[in-house]
Design a protein around this nucleic acid. Structure first.
Lengths: 272, 272
DNA sequence: TTGTACGCGTTATCAT
DNA sequence: ATGATAACGCGTACAA
């Protein structure tokens, strides 16, 4: 059978409640009993039951993550970042693919709420307004809540700076990493004699472009689809994940996270 | 406050236990009371509490998934397949990255066990022997347990067949999708006048190869890194996920899954 | 500083 | 077919 707190209490000859206090690090506990309890814990190989704790404390050390499509090229990197931070804090996450279907999305939300998750991460659009628990939005700025996204403006200015005096071509994927970046390029994609043109689509075979020209490919760190010789504009999926986690944790723990949009900077790196 | 079963029971003027029976679809219940209860449920917007259910039933409708690295190129597709099937069955999953560290792996396992997960999926090597709950291994055949993997032999014979009379070059990624496939190619990579050579590494720039030659690139469906004109040998990550889920579900529900290795076939597709 | 006792929301085992 | 009640394992207000 399972080792419970009562077993530990009996072994350490103290009360159940005392064991609970020791485990939760209650300061008002004598070093003597604390040691006795820890000894018994190790002796019996006791492991606290997260389910029971959850029922009693009305929380679960779990957060829910909503994604339109888990197999999107950057999802893995994002989740890796998220997991890295959450696991360090003893928080697990549950993933749900919504496929862009509002009904499915709400159903998934209710299922997770019934599990008493402590927070939500919404990567598939606006958070449901009646979630009732801390939520952060990822990928698009949101008014009146906490959101984290990639700074597209920074990408635009980095490209503009790179373009000084020459022509550069920027390739995004089929669903662009930096949507609407066109509009952010100053002076109608021209400045200082340079020019930037952006293509949302597949990378065409390299044609005979002048050696002065520069090719930039948008990608994530782990995506190997960048041809050699091209500049890379990294979409910081991993960092987006770690930042999401930190923000959500702070929000859950009520550490005074003021609503607002936080951004991560994309990184432009040369082929050399 | 939260709507509980007691609230529903009171509203429907029946006992808590009856509500539970109705909700779980107990056959020996009168249509009359059943209707009363459902009415009250909808009236009050009652949603069962998964935590409480877990405490009482000693299960959680949750499984744990261990991955060495979540950001690996195929992880997203695998997880998409897994989620697709699990969510249809009301099961959620919790993801843990182990980074190949045995200690971290065991810690993660114990954390999940304390959550009373119903099963494990091990993508990062042999299952821990003392997991104590249904486990399946993914990616490598395992003796004495349930495992699912990609049929490398099938990949080898498809390549051999393709090579009849010509020379083909197969490129895998840095960490090969089909490890050890070399050894499975008959006749020392030659047969019927054709030949197969395999490169574990990055795709080199296309040099002047004869038009008779064939290039094959190993990839997953969603990976855009396949140059046009090349054959594709798909590593069926998504299918691996759906199959994993089905096998695990059957094992959990005790549906007589006999230990053994199940395989998924890779798909070779032409560039046309 | 520690013990008592109740609550958390369900399921399951008795009765009836 | 349904009601009463005891688990399930832990947190915590309250008492000591």
């Amino acid at each position: 059978m399972r080792v419970t707190m009562s077993d530990v209490a009996r072994a350490a000859q103290v009360n159940k409640a005392t064991v609970s206090r020791v485990l939760r690090g209650d300061p008002r506990i004598s070093p003597a009993t604390s040691e006795k309890v820890w000894a018994a814990v190790k002796e019996l190989g006791y492991r606290p039951d997260a389910i029971a704790r959850g029922l009693s404390s009305s929380s679960s050390d779990t957060v829910g993550v909503f994604l339109r499509d888990i197999s999107s090229p950057w999802a893995g990197e994002y989740l890796a970042g998220l997991e890295r931070v959450l696991s360090r804090h003893g928080i697990e996450f549950i993933l749900r693919a919504t496929g862009g279907d509002p009904q499915q999305r709400r159903n998934a939300m209710f299922r997770l709420l019934s599990r008493r998750v402590d927070g939500f991460v919404w990567l598939d659009g606006e958070p449901e307004p009646d979630a009732g628990i801390p939520s952060i939005a990822v990928g698009r700025t949101r008014a009146g809540g906490v959101s984290v996204s990639v700074d597209i403006g920074s990408a635009a200015s980095q490209l503009t700076r790179l373009a000084e005096g020459r022509k550069i071509e920027v390739f995004q994927g089929e669903n662009p990493f930096f949507p609407g970046i066109q509009a952010l390029l100053p002076g109608d994609t021209k400045r200082g004699g340079g020019s930037v043109s952006i293509f949302d689509g597949l990378l065409p075979p390299r044609n005979g472009s002048s050696p002065e020209d520069i090719t930039v490919v948008c990608a994530t760190r782990r995506c190997p689809a960048v041809p050699s010789g091209a500049w890379k504009l990294y979409w910081p999926a991993f960092e987006l994940g770690t930042l999401s986690a930190r923000l959500l944790l702070n929000t859950i723990q009520g550490k005074g996270v003021r609503p607002g949009a936080v951004t991560v900077l994309p990184v432009l790196s040369s082929p050399f």
